[in-house]
Nucleic acid binder design. Structure first.
Lengths: 212, 212
DNA sequence: GTCTATATGTGGATAGAC
DNA sequence: GTCTATCCACATATAGAC
């Protein structure tokens, strides 16, 4: 959801939450297709029955993980994007920094969200297509948060003359890619800071108006 | 392969080539796990038998597609990276531009290669692990081509003081991401030029030494 | 070399005991 | 609400005809 409080999300019982955490880990480990419901159940020391009590199908579990991860991302970035008291450059820097941080600290959920984005172009089953369309819509809305800030910076002369919508692609691509190489087992707080800083500098630099 | 001529690759018969092209399309459409051998066969107007005559298992087909895509990438970038007659900044710009181009023109193969990179962290089956390790090794070697150029630019004062190895992550992440959103059906030559230029400017800008 | 069976294993989903 | 038992579809891989 985007327009209402994440905590008020219809499907958010306490039983679900445990399943979602387990599912995020399992999907991250093996990918959507290769993950079995048994894997998810085993991850939380239970059996299939428990999962199927809360969800009708594997795809539903998957989508709930994805929406959950995206909610978290949007909830974190939106306030920064909307903070008019900060200069655009600072605002974008912080958005990028925050996004990078979540890619590392909430690796499982974000990695699964990335999988979902991929799937939309490989249209898995027509059945799930409708639900995946929702995911794509959320992603588009998220991209727009970045595009708007980039546009503002461009108009203000801080950023280059770019097609803001196109410019979000390398920026968010670079960021989302983090979930593919970052190993949450190995990184500590300092490493994460270092990575997030480098990404923020990199992306701001990529958009900033050339000196010459 | 990296150290020898791609054309001399052991498994490169004419029968194989047709299978690889079909497999690349099929894997791109549905992902590794969801693609069936029947899908691949149907893609080239044949049946399972033909595929299994050349390959012992689905994983082998997949890996051959991946290696093939990576070979193509390395073969294109290496000469640019080695051309000492060009200033570092130009060299890197062209490497990025070329990489971006292949992501679009050879979308299927590159998209499959991206899938493989993902899989290494999600260690599918221990059986395939050994082969995937090779893929990871090739990717590391490829990253090093970029890291070396970045280091050279850093020492020369053109680029910022970055950890070159870390700096390849946002750069190649942004680039590889192209295969996930670019739709080869819709883009024409001009679009591809525009995208590749924007990516090259973006990445060079992200590494260039700040004006102030 | 390419095809049509077919053996075999696995995993999503359901039924029903507790 | 959580479990075990089971049905059933489907996909890998093989055997063997042509």
């Amino acid at each position: 959801m985007i327009d209402d409080d994440p905590l008020a999300r219809p499907h958010a019982g306490p039983g679900q939450r445990e399943i979602l955490e387990a599912a995020a880990i399992a999907f991250t480990r093996s990918g959507y297709a290769a993950t079995t419901i048994d894997d998810i159940a085993r991850e939380m020391g239970a059996t299939k029955g428990r999962v199927y009590h809360y969800y009708r199908a594997k795809a539903d579990v998957f989508l709930d993980v994805v929406i959950s991860g995206m909610d978290e991302m949007i909830a974190g970035i939106q306030p920064i994007a909307a903070d008019e008291s900060l200069p655009v450059e600072t605002r974008l820097w912080r958005m990028v920094h925050h996004h990078a941080g979540l890619m590392m600290t909430r690796n499982s959920f974000q990695r699964v969200a990335v999988q979902a984005v991929e799937m939309h172009r490989l249209r898995e089953q027509p059945a799930q297509q409708k639900a995946l369309d929702k995911v794509v819509a959320m992603r588009d809305q998220y991209e727009q948060l970045f595009a708007d800030v980039i546009d503002e910076g461009r108009r203000g002369g801080v950023f280059r003359e770019v097609d803001s919508r196109l410019a979000t692609k390398p920026a968010l691509g670079a960021l989302n890619w983090i979930s593919l190489w970052y190993d949450p087992q190995r990184g500590d707080y300092n490493t994460r800071q270092r990575v997030a800083n480098e990404y923020a500098d990199f992306i701001i630099g990529g958009l900033r108006r050339s000196p010459a």
